[in-house]
Design a protein around this nucleic acid. Structure first.
Lengths: 328, 328
DNA sequence: CTGAAAGCGCTTACAG
DNA sequence: CTGAAAGCGCTTACAG
């Protein structure tokens, strides 16, 4: 099936100007007389002409495309993040080339297309890249920003919450409440988010001579639910539980509920992320608010403005605790 | 900042062949001697060369890009759908240009970029287009497929569940159980999904002389939760509730739980979608399974193979009921 | 099988 | 302010 595109040449002919002039009309800042501009715009409208972004990208080496790779996960947090990126990038005139991946570490072939389309930057959310993949991308002079992840051996920009201090504050809150039997349900143990949350939490309490019980989860509801249930069945009813993210905390909450343990009276629960579900009336989960909007803004800013490849920056933003019904 | 791309010319020089030959090596089916092919591939690898997709798209009028627009909604169902589309399209060599939208009816400007990048097709999920926007897109000979929505006045392909028959089956199930006091909590009332689910459900029961109580929701948890709670506080404790989607059913479920109404003994609940949450141990929601994978396959097939603009098809696929703990 | 050349739809010096 | 021309990185008839 033959496609027929309306090109600048067609518009030029009908408007009695050169093709260059048509191009200028659609190039912000180029000088065209007001009269000619109006005429061209009129004809363009009539013909339903729109400059071909591919041709433009070819010339300008400016495609206005950003690649975004996101890991398959049940956490709605990333859904909100994706929406935010799409809206914010659009406001700035960028388009999102999207890839869903199943791997914790993004594979070269999954983002080869990003390179072929000459994206102007790559955002990786909830996943990592091996450093030689990073090197290849940087060879092409394409900046990368990791969102909500970082890794000391991977030389690219990153934006995340200040997880260590956040979890210290949570630990401190529990401590002030007088809790001494405290549980941390981990996320995926090899992720930077989990490592930092765990670290801050445990370290703070260690200083207070409190040893935290660690339950190894994986950021899913199911795992957390079963871990909590089993713990209770084994006779352990902690005074407080910190879940590595909201989904984890909610899994614990449901297990407690099923075992008729009253929250927050017998056991207090705190999550992390502040996903929409956390404020559902049946949960009203106390949690740590990640400043999504700021994080996204910062990620985009870094990606588009930071002196690309050479001096990666790791930005950490502060969130805040929000008290709902699962803490006293 | 100057970007330096490796082009076919660079490879050609180093491999001692013409640029045309390099191109042929990367064009499936073009004839190149095995010896030359190996040589070129070797040099390409060394230089980290990759054909420029923009230039290719410009020549071929084949960009391998599909535009996907999705409405901002809290329903995780669409998250799963998005992932499925991304994976399936990638398998077929297509890339996804993604746009998040807040509007029930997609605006022209939100998808202008799709046109500028010459996408080969557009998928609209959980939203609609006005028919004159459709006309403009079809003028460019770009096919559209609506996913999980359709509208008789909008001449484009669509893929959805057979919602009418699905909800008839659900109605029939309730009827067979002997329930006579039955509630339907609607989704957004102007969506085709809701209209059909409501229609099938009510019609079936009307034939049996049963009048269904309609609660007007909007596909959100919160709305459904409050509606159900209020209903109970008003003294109405139905025998069965059908929620227009899982989120809706879960909202109702939580309200029932809070009011200490036992499910399914006093009130049975059925949802629609079979999102991951429906199988969480605390819900174990009985629901209607939408055959996501088949729906996505079919949507892609229609988009890429159906005789474009002229004869739009509306495909409806059958799902199945899955019995969990919220029905007897 | 392979190379030279035209052309896809643009942008942008260069003249005028 | 405007046009003719070169060129972005490719593909693909056309010859050989």
């Amino acid at each position: 099936m033959e496609k027929k595109f309306v090109s600048a040449k067609d518009v030029a002919k009908l408007a009695n100007v050169s093709q260059s002039t048509v191009s200028r009309v659609f190039t912000p800042g180029a000088s065209v007389s007001e009269k000619v501009r109006r005429k061209v715009l009129e004809v363009a409208e009539e013909l339903n002409y729109r400059p071909n972004a591919l041709a433009r990208g070819l010339i300008n080496k400016k495609t206005n495309i950003v690649g975004l790779a996101m890991k398959d996960i049940q956490n709605p947090f990333y859904h909100e993040v994706l929406g935010m990126f799409s809206m914010k990038l659009r406001e700035k005139g960028y388009n999102v080339l999207f890839v869903y991946t199943k791997n914790e570490e993004i594979q070269q072939e999954e983002i080869n297309h990003f390179l072929e389309y000459n994206v102007e930057g790559i955002i990786i959310t909830d996943a990592l890249l091996s450093s030689n993949v990073v090197a290849k991308i940087h060879d092409n002079n394409i900046p990368i920003t990791l969102f909500n992840r970082y890794h000391k051996d991977i030389p690219c920009n990153s934006v995340s919450s200040d997880n260590i201090n956040a979890s210290k504050e949570i630990a401190s809150y529990f401590y002030e409440q007088g809790y001494r039997d405290i549980v941390y349900i981990t996320g995926k143990i090899n992720t930077s988010t989990n490592k930092d949350r765990q670290k801050g939490f445990i370290e703070y309490l260690k200083e207070k001579k409190i040893e935290v019980t660690i339950l190894e989860g994986n950021y899913t509801y199911e795992k957390s639910y079963y871990l909590t249930k089993k713990m209770i069945e084994n006779g352990h009813r902690p005074e407080a539980i910190f879940g590595a993210n909201d989904i984890t905390a909610i899994g614990a909450l449901d297990a407690l509920r099923e075992k008729n343990i009253s929250v927050p009276e017998e056991t207090a629960v705190i999550g992390f992320d502040n996903i929409k579900m956390a404020s559902w009336p049946s949960y009203m989960l106390s949690t740590w608010v990640q400043p999504i909007e700021k994080m996204v803004d910062e990620a985009i800013h870094l990606l588009l403005n930071n002196d690309r490849v050479n001096s990666p920056k790791a930005v950490k933003l502060k969130g805040k605790f929000i008290h709902r019904n699962t803490t006293k």
